[in-house]
Simulated scan of single mutants.
Amino acid sequence: MFKGCFITGIDTGIGKTLGSCVLLTALARHHAKVVGMKPIASGLIPHEGGWASEDALALRAASTLKVPPELDNPISLPDPLSPHLAAARAGRRIELPLLVERYHMLAAQADVVVVEGAGGWYVPLNERDMMSDLAAALGLPVVLVVGLRLGCLNHAMLTAEAIRAKGLTLAGWVANHVDPEMACVDENLDWLKAHLGAPLLADIPWQAQPDPACANVHLPADWV
Rank of each mutant, 00 (worst) to 15 (best):
residue 101 E to K: 15
residue 190 D to K: 15
residue 109 Q to I: 06
residue 187 E to N: 02
residue 140 L to R: 14
residue 140 L to P: 10
residue 85 L to I: 15
residue 207 Q to V: 05
residue 194 A to L: 04
residue 130 M to P: 00
residue 46 P to I: 14
residue 133 D to I: 02
residue 191 W to M: 13
residue 183 A to G: 08
residue 92 R to Q: 13
residue 34 V to F: 01
residue 31 H to Y: 13
residue 162 A to E: 06
residue 57 L to A: 08
residue 176 N to D: 09
residue 123 V to Y: 09
residue 105 M to G: 14
residue 129 D to G: 02
residue 173 W to Q: 08
residue 16 K to P: 02
residue 198 A to S: 11
residue 63 S to H: 01
residue 191 W to F: 12
residue 22 V to T: 06
residue 39 P to I: 06
residue 90 A to F: 00
residue 175 A to S: 15
residue 120 G to M: 10
residue 154 N to I: 10
residue 33 K to P: 00
residue 176 N to I: 11
residue 191 W to Q: 10
residue 179 D to K: 09
residue 26 A to G: 05
residue 143 V to P: 01
residue 137 A to W: 03
residue 95 E to M: 10
residue 6 F to R: 04
residue 108 A to H: 07
residue 95 E to Q: 15
residue 86 A to P: 05
residue 208 A to E: 15
residue 61 A to Q: 14
residue 157 M to I: 09
residue 181 E to W: 06
residue 172 G to P: 06
residue 33 K to I: 00
residue 84 H to I: 02
residue 105 M to T: 11
residue 104 H to D: 03
residue 121 W to S: 10
residue 153 L to S: 02
residue 173 W to L: 09
residue 136 A to W: 02
residue 195 H to M: 02
residue 142 V to A: 06
residue 130 M to F: 15
residue 61 A to F: 00
residue 159 T to M: 13
residue 169 T to S: 12
residue 149 R to P: 07
residue 71 L to K: 01
residue 195 H to D: 14
residue 217 V to K: 00
residue 178 V to K: 04
residue 171 A to E: 08
residue 55 D to M: 07
residue 125 L to N: 03
residue 163 I to E: 10
residue 154 N to S: 14
residue 5 C to Y: 12
residue 9 G to R: 12
residue 186 D to E: 15
residue 16 K to C: 01
residue 90 A to W: 03
residue 64 T to H: 06
residue 126 N to S: 09
residue 5 C to A: 15
residue 100 V to L: 08
residue 21 C to K: 05
residue 220 P to Q: 01
residue 98 L to T: 13
residue 134 L to S: 09
residue 179 D to A: 12
residue 64 T to L: 03
residue 135 A to P: 04
residue 184 C to R: 10
residue 81 L to Y: 07
residue 34 V to Y: 04
residue 44 L to M: 08
residue 196 L to M: 11
residue 113 V to K: 03
residue 200 L to A: 14
residue 79 D to Y: 08
residue 161 E to R: 14
residue 193 K to Q: 15
residue 105 M to W: 01
residue 68 P to F: 05
residue 38 K to Y: 01
residue 34 V to W: 01
residue 158 L to D: 11
residue 50 G to E: 06
residue 112 V to S: 05
residue 215 A to K: 01
residue 217 V to D: 02
residue 1 M to N: 06
residue 105 M to C: 14
residue 45 I to P: 00
residue 30 H to P: 11
residue 154 N to C: 09
residue 71 L to E: 00
residue 100 V to K: 13
residue 219 L to Y: 13
residue 143 V to G: 03
residue 146 V to F: 01
residue 212 P to F: 04
residue 80 P to K: 13
residue 193 K to S: 13
residue 59 L to R: 00
residue 54 E to K: 03
residue 174 V to Y: 01
residue 185 V to L: 12
residue 16 K to R: 07
residue 221 A to I: 04
residue 191 W to L: 13
residue 126 N to I: 07
residue 138 L to T: 12
residue 49 G to R: 05
residue 71 L to M: 12
residue 64 T to D: 10
residue 38 K to H: 04
residue 69 P to N: 02
residue 19 G to A: 09
residue 190 D to G: 11
residue 187 E to Y: 05
